[in-house]
């Protein structure tokens, strides 16, 4: 399963400044593992020492927050778009 991953600006140093990259996996967690293989260091930015997604990292699958799906266990399919967004971005009004 090949998905397109949108890389946020703060992580692009690790992806040779690429804004989008392709990665394989059957679920979100596997895609993140595969990103680490392609771009060493990426996983430790996204996950804490226990391998759990950091609280300030949000991941969206085709625009849907994976916290509303099955989290890292959410299955992915060919052609899906995975977007990594710093949780602190945005925040409007009060």
């Amino acid at each position: 399963m090949s998905v397109t991953v949108i890389i946020p600006t703060p992580l692009r140093k690790l992806t040779n400044e690429q804004e989008t990259v392709d990665a394989d996996g059957a679920k979100v967690a596997e895609v993140i593992e595969q990103l680490q293989t392609q771009f060493p260091g990426l996983k430790e930015r996204l996950c804490d020492d226990n391998g759990v997604l950091r609280r300030f990292v949000n991941v969206f699958l085709n625009g849907e927050d994976i916290r509303f799906l099955d989290g890292p266990e959410t299955p992915v399919k060919d052609g899906d778009e995975l977007s990594i967004i710093p949780a602190i971005a945005g925040g409007c009004c009060c």
Binding site: P8, P10, L11, R45, R54, F56, P86, I88
Partner: peptide, 8 residues
């Protein structure tokens, strides 16, 4: 910049 590159 707006987010920490180390810990987000």
């Amino acid at each position: 910049r707006y987010v920490c590159e180390e810990c987000f």
